[in-house]
């Protein structure tokens, strides 16, 4: 399984987590990641607005480019998980669900985590790496 990178955005479009797992995407400065997250948040809102179908729910779900494929999962509370993978990576849905579970278990259940703030939970990162890059 080749997952390139994971970004987590809070409901206001702020970046609360970013981590690269494999080579493939360029390293950006932390400021650039923040800008990227904010831009994506706006674009995501517009994509649901320009839908040609009436009463369509939700914005961008999958973005494809020549070199990667990005899956966006928005929770009911508005948190977004962006998973970057290789273009022909199957079953990203499963990965997204699992990452969401890890987030629920190790971030939301961490008594010291302040909601909407950047995620600094060691257990979360450890389990994430163990799941995405098993040795």
């Amino acid at each position: 399984m080749v997952i390139l990178s994971l970004l987590i955005l809070n409901k206001a479009g702020g970046l609360i987590f970013q981590r690269d797992f494999n080579e493939g995407l360029k390293k950006l400065s932390s400021n650039d990641y923040l800008v990227l997250a904010g831009t994506f948040h706006g674009v995501h809102a517009i994509t649901s607005r320009i839908s040609p179908v009436r009463n369509s729910g939700g914005g961008l779900e999958v973005l494809e480019s020549d070199r990667f494929r990005m899956q966006c999962f928005q929770t009911l509370t508005g948190t977004k998980f962006l998973i970057f993978a290789e273009p022909n990576q199957p079953n990203i849905d499963v990965v997204v669900k699992r990452v969401y579970e890890l987030y629920a278990d190790y971030v939301m259940k961490n008594p010291f985590y302040q909601i909407e703030m950047p995620i600094r939970c060691e257990a979360f990162e450890r389990n994430l790496v163990a799941y995405i890059k098993p040795k």
């Binding site: 995407l25 369509s56 729910g57 939700g58 961008l60 779900e61 973005l63 020549d66 990667f68």
Partner: peptide, 15 residues
């Protein structure tokens, strides 16, 4: 994110 020679192909939403 992936260099100037990469290009965006498509995206999809639920609808």
């Amino acid at each position: 994110l992936s260099g100037p020679d990469d290009s965006f192909i498509s995206y999809r939403t639920g609808s």
